[in-house]
Design a binder for these strands. Structure first.
Lengths: 222, 222
DNA sequence: GTATTGTTTAACAACGGTGTTAAACACGCG
DNA sequence: CGCGTGTTTAACACCGTTGTTAAACAATAC
């Protein structure tokens, strides 16, 4: 059953990292014990302290790996090599597809920010930078389109929040859905997520292009 | 400093419950210790076990209280005493305002469902019932409006998901925002939430009424 | 005053989690 | 073989958490 025999000395470190990543992504820092990691990796818990001195070291390694992937994933979102809407749509779509490949990332980071914010400190700067770049990027594009009268007036920050929260919450709902309605397997979830993506895009498009004349009542541009 | 002197014997139970509610709502079950509750209530931790035998008992009391409020909050959402859109808009608004009064409820229940689902077991039935009633309620109304050609075709489940996730994530973002951008105090948050509510309503309205002819390409009704 | 009852305290037991250490083990090299 | 290096094990120390208990305390009734 164990993977012990297929791994000569020093697949160990790898095995620990894999087990740790899986558990940390699922349960967060506080609810993952070094014993759980050791058990899942098929080693004694003393090994964790031999390879990585502390639990925190292991966590930071997992966090680093995932944060790099996350931050990298934002760059393709800010390309402008097509007309406004196509560009925005592929941006949403790309972001959604990234989350599809890392469905546990949103809850993982959510947990970390809430319960171990100090572990995120080293990333605060880059995150703020990235967020402000995204907002500024879209501010500019949106303002251009508004000026041309092609879309309705909207606060770009609100639009970014719309897209981000819709995409993220689609994945953050998964634990709720499976916990509350266990009869739907993960196969069902995949189907729902696909239609969710279509819906989110439809929603944003309607928001921008629907009823140009009426929708500009109370949203203010910053 | 303590509140001890203002409370004669047996404000204790009350004090414990209040401390417990605050801490459980903030940190969830696993990350709240009985010692923390005792300290916040200004009593020794043995008192918790004297009044409520176990930590779980205290938690269940807090959970019960909040679940009752939550479930009750869904009924006013399903009134139909006005035209379709006004009715839906006040539904969204009512739901949002409820969350405004209980801003920590979403994360609290989210944590509980993910990490202590067994504590939610007693509510599973009522939750499923409520969810399915809401979906059925809106299914009917939406189908009527679609048949009359007043709104564009849309899967009612997706619309309910849109509204629910937009409203919920507005509040679930708060810990992220304050954790990541501590310079914005809770006063700022209030402002943002107010504009968020307007934006969510605008989004849903545009989704339903914008570009009737084009939007019905790939959303399928169940 | 004393007995009774309910409340509070302080000390303790049991457990699980993190991290350490010394000894056992495996392996390549002289 | 014997030696050194790197790896693994098992036992342990330490701490925080939950829950118990016996004794101290307060208040009321007799």
């Amino acid at each position: 059953m164990g993977t012990k025999e297929t791994r000569e000395h020093s697949g160990t470190e790898q095995a620990i990292m894999e087990a740790a990543e899986e558990l940390f992504l699922e349960n967060g820092y506080n609810l993952t014990t070094t014993t759980m990691i050791a058990k899942k990796a098929g080693v004694t818990h003393a090994m964790l302290h031999y390879y990585f001195r502390t639990k925190e070291h292991i966590f930071v390694k997992v966090l680093d790996k995932n944060m790099e992937e996350l931050l990298a994933s934002f760059y393709p979102v800010m390309r402008k090599d097509a007309p406004f809407w196509e560009s925005l749509e592929t941006g949403i779509s790309t972001h959604f597809d990234f989350l599809m490949k890392h469905p546990k990332l949103p809850t993982f980071l959510y947990d970390t920010v809430r319960f171990n914010p100090e572990l995120m400190d080293s990333y605060k700067g880059r995150i703020r930078e990235t967020v402000s770049r995204i907002v500024r990027f879209h501010c500019k594009l949106i303002q251009e389109e508004i000026d041309k009268g092609r879309i309705c007036r909207i606060d770009p920050l609100q639009l970014v929040l719309d897209i981000a929260t819709l995409n993220l919450s689609a994945f953050m709902m998964i634990p709720v859905a499976t916990g509350m309605f266990p009869e739907m397997g993960s196969g069902m979830a995949e189907e729902i997520l696909k239609s969710r993506k279509e819906e989110i895009i439809a929603l944003v498009r309607a928001r921008l292009y629907g009823r140009l004349e009426e929708t500009q009542h109370d949203t203010k541009t910053i």
